[in-house]
Design a protein around this nucleic acid. Sequence first.
DNA 1: CTCCGTGCAAAGCATTTGCATCCAT
DNA 2: ATGGATGCAAATGCTTTGCACGGAG
Lengths: 145, 145
Amino acid sequence: MTETTPPADTPLPVIGVRTTRQRQAILAALTGRNHPMTAQAVHAALTGTGHRIGLSTVYRALHRLAEVGLLHVFDVGGERAYRRCPDTPHQHLLCDDCGLVTECPPQLVEAWLRELREATGFTPHPDRIDLHGHCAACPATPRSP
Amino acid sequence: MTETTPPADTPLPVIGVRTTRQRQAILAALTGRNHPMTAQAVHAALTGTGHRIGLSTVYRALHRLAEVGLLHVFDVGGERAYRRCPDTPHQHLLCDDCGLVTECPPQLVEAWLRELREATGFTPHPDRIDLHGHCAACPATPRSP
DNA sequence: CTCCGTGCAAAGCATTTGCATCCAT
DNA sequence: ATGGATGCAAATGCTTTGCACGGAG
């Protein structure tokens, strides 16, 4: 009977965030994608599919949606990219080759994070673990012939 | 008798990279620092201490020095920051509070990375592991009262 | 002697902001 | 009705680039 652990497919409304046509369009564009998108990319995608939305609106909306936890922010080559993420704690595996983002099974990480903290005194933030590397589909060869 | 594992305090020369007054100044400013610096910060620091150097030179030099492995690049709040790093493989522990960067004992990570790869098919890049969190000196409280 | 590196200024781009209007609650 | 959200355009700020000169190898 509480509002904790909402189902992963409940985009909006969220307390304090208004449901607008634009925000729903942004979430729709992002949902189901495993490659994070930049603000520019989102704007281009929406504009390209006939949506009418201002660029600054995209920036502001992405900000806000990330702030309330609906989106996660990534650093892709110095630019900020966003991805629709589950509301439950998880880590990210980032393919430097194709940009694919997958989620890491939490229990696989948590034990190790604890171990790390005990050994170093450093307390890792479980929700901000982004591991760079190569996904299964992109073997060691960065540029294929 | 080989040129592998050069001492960590051998800034320049490096093959293909010329030793100039400006680059030495940049490396000097970065050496011994555990907080990565942005190009702007490096430029301000050098200018402030009487050095004569162009901003674009700083950008180009940081690029180049990172390219040859003398510096490591960090994403600090969307900006690129640079840090003098040991030439041996290592991981980074990034304090989101004070910005301190420490190195993680490699053996503490490598076993886990292997485990992760076997479980997920994802191959992490050992040299690009940046773990965000709080250092021992910055306890859980982000903003103190 | 040759080229890489440098400086300066201009250009490029992603992102932010001011302000009037609009609409979700 | 009220305040958050939007759109447009201008502004901001980091980063890159063109070009001529200077210095390292």
